[in-house]
Write a protein that binds this DNA or RNA. Structure first.
Lengths: 228, 228
DNA sequence: TGTATTTATTAGGTGAACCTAATTTTAGTA
DNA sequence: TACTAAAATTAGGTTCACCTAATAAATACA
């Protein structure tokens, strides 16, 4: 059986490799992420390696093995289901959810996770818009589409942009819209295709169709009617 | 702030003093209860004493101070609310609940506890029939009454008996009804006052009015209509 | 290509929470 | 009251997860 304390390492390694898309994960990154010092992390990686959950070489970095991957998905699932439950059922705000889920994810009961998932309505994405892996470790594919194709009332998350001119990125920075920003589509103006969105709880902005075309998002709610 | 690991000691001390009604709690009892060895417990008691949460003298035993008592009630509250939530909302069986609640009670968020309590319908007693302390640490007084006064459908817990003849106690032992046994009142027979109860999940028994008169219970459900 | 900087590694240490074994204290009873 | 059994205490050890400081290796770039 996997130790509880392994889990945070596996999740962190997963998150980091995810974020850097195939780049190698390093000890110092991991240490920073986990708020530990490199020697502590190194020591632990040796154990994880002995348990055949990861491979590590100075040159090639840290990688999850097949079974490590499986475990990591399981931890990610637990974490995201707790977040979902806390947000949807317990009405915790977006920002409060993460820290609490961190503590709760240590509890070991698959049955509990299943019940919480049911109570939360079995969504495919957590409140941050991150996909919830199935029990078998499969991620629901997020339907990447331009913000422009939204329907009113849609809740979505920014996955990226389709243009990286400085001007465009500066514009988004100015508006404080970044990666993983969660947008609520409040109104669509059909006469010019502009989109009114609300984000960061209370900020609103009207984005021109030109901009909305280039912001790539994915819906968070199940069965959303947006065109993909 | 109280350390998480203090909490299990405080709860254990509370439980033990509770069970022995004013008898002094001893180190060896506590060690047995916590599944630790006496030296470990002693070491820890010194710390708890330094934190002014308990008083301890070899002669007078272990006692909670005022602030220790307050903390203990808080832990008990957390624990019982988790148990209630797991049972009522997550549909865990009675027996599964305790171990899980043990893990969950380490999570520190008063807000979460409040939300779970609301989700569970704010009952005064947990699924074992134990009272849930209020935030201020006040226990709801259990309405001690004879089983005889039940209404059909009542769920109650055995608090004690009003007679202690060996015959009577043997009879209860034979039926496997003990202290804290949870009884569901299935039927009342008005012609002779006997009471049909179900317990231990599936055992049923019909108790004569003479017996039902002497078994003292308290209702678990809020607003139960039983005579007190 | 050589040097500066970053990153990884080693060595050794701390405090917490446990333990065992040995000793002392307390309490119960012949 | 003296003796024995039980309970408490002391002393000293282990493991674990963390740390710091020093050294070695890798990388970046002038």
């Amino acid at each position: 059986m996997i130790k509880t304390s392994d889990e945070k390492y596996l999740r962190a390694i997963y998150q980091i490799s995810q974020a850097e898309q195939g780049q190698k994960a390093t000890i110092s990154e991991l240490a920073y992420y986990l708020d530990l010092k490199p020697p502590t992390v190194l020591e632990r990686l040796k154990i994880l390696q002995a348990e055949k959950l990861i491979t590590y070489k100075k040159t090639s970095g840290i990688h999850l093995t097949k079974s490590g991957q499986k475990e990591a998905m399981n931890v990610v699932r637990k974490h995201r289901i707790w977040e979902t439950f806390l947000h949807k059922v317990c009405k915790f705000s977006w920002s409060e959810v993460h820290e609490l889920a961190e503590q709760l994810q240590n509890v070991n009961s698959e049955k509990l996770i299943d019940r919480l998932y049911t109570l939360s309505g079995e969504p495919q994405f957590d409140p941050h818009g991150d996909p919830i892996p199935s029990k078998t470790g499969v991620l629901p594919s997020s339907q990447r589409r331009p913000l422009l194709n939204s329907v009113e009332g849609c809740k979505c998350v920014v996955l990226g942009v389709n243009e990286d001119s400085t001007d465009f990125l500066n514009y988004l920075t100015e508006l404080n819209i970044g990666l993983n920003e969660r947008l609520n589509v409040e109104k669509l103006f059909s006469f010019d295709g502009s989109v009114k969105v609300k984000y960061k709880n209370s900020v609103t902005a009207v984005l021109s169709s030109k901009v909305a075309e280039k912001i790539m998002v994915t819906c968070i709610k199940a069965n959303c009617l947006c065109k993909v």
